Amino acid sequence: MSIKGLLVTGASGFVGSALLQHLARSKSHSLIAALRIECPDLPGAVRRFKITELSATTDWSPVLGDVDAVVHAAARVHVMDETATDPLTEFRRVNVDATLNLARQAAAAGVKRFIFISSIKVNGEGTEPGCAYTADDIPAPADPYGISKLEAELGLKQLVATTAMELVIIRPVLVYGPGVKANFLSMIRWLQRGVPLPFGAIDNRRSLVSLDNLVDLIETCLEHPCAAHQTFLVSDGEDVSTTRLLRMIAAALNKPVWLLPIPVEFMKVMAGLMGKGAVAQRVFGSLQVDIEKNKRLLGWGPPVSLGQGLSKTVKPFLESRKS
């Protein structure tokens, strides 16, 4: 399959903007960025398509006639401190209804391939060490965000079953890279300041994916014939404990690290008492994914190692502190 025109939604977001910057350098596609707010980092050659809201009534007709493929990265993302009174309804409004609206219009316009950026939360919240999720496991989402992503996947599969459009689903684990925010950025800041952290005795296993590796897999899935109607998990292929991850980030920062070996069970109890059980799961629990399917079907392996990805992540952080 040859893809000439490409529409990327969520173009001002972490993944969408990185994908467009990468593809613009290759100059092999005509690129259209759908965005609600301007993104100054997008290359000048990328055509902007401004939308006021991502919803079930958004009209995509001005751009769909010019594209062969869509990468749908826009979403209502998971938030730690949810404020909506009915979170599932809010997630469904954007992640399900708006997604299916775009896909229906894309199929009607003759778009060849629709790549949906889903989430590992469709699989579940965690694994036992050594028991990795696979792309073909029975989904078990546990929160409104994961449920909405699964419902979108199921709706898309039902839609493409009656059209000529091909569907590719990608479920990333935690994505990090230059410009990362939220808890990952907080870890970098703590380590840069030399703050002692009580995380020196954590023996879990977590899969992560660098932005470069995720973008590389998306690019592979744009045209690879074996990607059609498949679901892929994606990671760096190198699982680490939280303790080792912190040590690797500190090494990339060229900083000494102070990790106190506080017993994990004690910290879990304290986190539960403070209402931070979800945070504790991310810090102390395991979540591993198996990417063997990517290698088998696509010949794809992560081009960037975990160490390389972390070094690239902290570099702009260090440069911003100098300036």
Score class of each variant (00 low, 15 high):
139 P>Q: 05
107 A>R: 03
211 L>V: 09
50 K>G: 01
227 A>T: 03
131 C>S: 10
3 I>K: 05
168 V>G: 08
297 L>W: 13
128 E>M: 13
123 N>S: 13
313 T>H: 11
134 T>N: 03
213 N>C: 06
26 S>E: 15
294 N>I: 02
23 L>N: 08
105 Q>G: 00
199 F>L: 13
312 K>S: 00
204 N>A: 07
59 D>Q: 07
288 Q>I: 06
196 P>A: 07
172 P>Q: 14
22 H>M: 06
57 T>A: 14
163 T>D: 03
206 R>S: 03
78 H>I: 00
212 D>R: 02
37 I>D: 15
291 I>Q: 11
313 T>F: 09
214 L>Y: 10
171 R>P: 01
185 L>M: 14
98 A>M: 09
321 R>L: 13
241 S>V: 02
69 A>W: 02
30 S>Q: 13
71 V>M: 00
66 D>G: 01
203 D>F: 06
299 G>F: 12
71 V>R: 04
149 K>E: 11
135 A>R: 02
142 A>V: 14
36 R>T: 05
266 F>M: 15
266 F>L: 15
54 L>E: 10
226 C>S: 10
271 A>R: 12
238 E>H: 15
141 P>I: 06
277 G>Y: 11
124 G>R: 12
273 L>F: 09
300 W>F: 14
79 V>D: 06
219 E>R: 10
66 D>W: 02
122 V>W: 12
94 V>R: 06
266 F>E: 07
145 Y>A: 06
106 A>G: 02
177 G>D: 10
71 V>T: 03
170 I>V: 14
90 E>Q: 10
196 P>I: 04
33 A>S: 03
9 T>D: 08
319 E>T: 05
303 P>W: 09
135 A>T: 00
292 E>F: 08
56 A>I: 04
210 S>G: 15
145 Y>N: 09
184 F>E: 07
227 A>P: 01
154 L>E: 14
110 G>W: 11
172 P>S: 07
